[in-house]
Design a protein around this nucleic acid. Structure first.
Lengths: 196, 196
DNA sequence: GTCAAGCTAGCACAGTTGGGCTAGATTGGC
DNA sequence: GCCAATCTAGCCCAACTGTGCTAGCTTGAC
């Protein structure tokens, strides 16, 4: 039969080219041709894997979610629960070029949602995954907290993380900003507050 | 001399058409022609006010910032400071079609920043304005808080607000979400926490 | 009335877009 | 060797893009 190329690997390569274009030139520049050129692939080849632009963009978005989940799953659970939780949350902040790119891609896809409705589901799953992760971290840090309070604390932790991520994305060179963000997250984890 | 049309009003009309296109069809659909058609204006007329696309988009972004600032400036300072602060913060949440549109436009412009570098300044001024607003609300609610603690509290309040706004934008129909967001913001305002 | 500034409308052009389509290259099974 | 499934490459087209440019319309000053 045929060449038996590894589809998955190939598709991920294209998706990473999508990320690169978004980071360098913005969502508006994500065209089939630009991505193919970025990945050193002929347009026809790209279109064999992704017949339409929407499928390409959607896959790129899915991959962000999947990669982040994998990365977080491998964070070692050390002795200190709060340290572990902070290590996990750090993966959600745009502190490295890789996580910055993820963040930009996520924002870009939200901005494109009206044009490509499938992206709404990716956006919702991403935000949902962050929430559930935070919910897990809250019960890890405070096993005795009642469910309702933990739900609220998880929402607060998730919103705080997202908000800090947004601000770090805009002002990454503020030398104190990353440290300040981690201070705030640590406080959020160690010092639970009344529900109302 | 000429017709003496009110330029400002006219430009704002075009900017609002930009918002409408972003909300309905995404940033990718913001072309000179699409915006002109949306505003029922000939392309040539639009280009008399905004010679290039970048100027149009930048103005639309500036207007979001200006309109929000004006709206917040008119929030009545009632008897209760916390109520006032909540009323102000509510203006930053996408709870109405208008504020939802503002939020979507802001996100869209962030996503387009690599393509139109001027947008970076708008983004930074927007985030900066939110921070300074929060800083003001913090000292209003806690006049005795030391400066350093107030700075940190303001960062936390700003990040929490932005994060909640992002989540409300994605899931606006969750009946409990808006109420929950306000509960969290009220708690943030009334119950200050240790700096670290 | 006349004039010129301010404004509107739109044509033209080169470049890019998404996607339909086909011709050829590559490869495992027989 | 040979076939057929799989993959690559690319041509093509109608539609759309931003922007340069000009021709005409409107209107206040004189």
């Amino acid at each position: 039969m045929p060449k038996l190329i590894d589809h998955q690997t190939h598709k991920e390569l294209l998706a990473e080219a999508v990320w690169a274009v978004i980071v360098d030139d913005g969502v508006g520049a994500v065209s089939i041709r630009a991505v193919a050129s970025r990945a050193n692939v002929a347009v026809g080849s790209l279109r064999y894997l992704f017949p339409t632009r929407a499928e390409l963009v959607a896959f790129a978005g899915e991959l962000v979610l999947r990669r982040a989940a994998e990365r977080i799953a491998t964070v070692p659970l050390g002795t200190d629960r709060v340290t572990y939780a902070l290590d996990v949350l750090r993966e959600l902040l745009p502190l490295t070029p890789g996580t910055r790119a993820e963040m930009m891609v996520n924002l870009a896809l939200i901005a494109e949602t009206p044009a490509i409705p499938v992206l709404a589901s990716i956006r919702d799953r991403t935000l949902g995954a962050i929430y559930h992760l935070c919910r897990r971290l809250v019960t890890l840090a405070h096993p005795d907290m009642p469910d309702q309070a933990a739900d609220l604390a998880a929402t607060r932790l998730a919103a705080l993380t997202d908000g800090l991520a947004l601000r770090l994305l805009a002002a990454p060179d503020s030398a104190t900003a990353p440290a300040q963000a981690l201070v705030l997250l640590r406080a959020e984890l160690t010092c639970p507050r009344p529900a109302t």
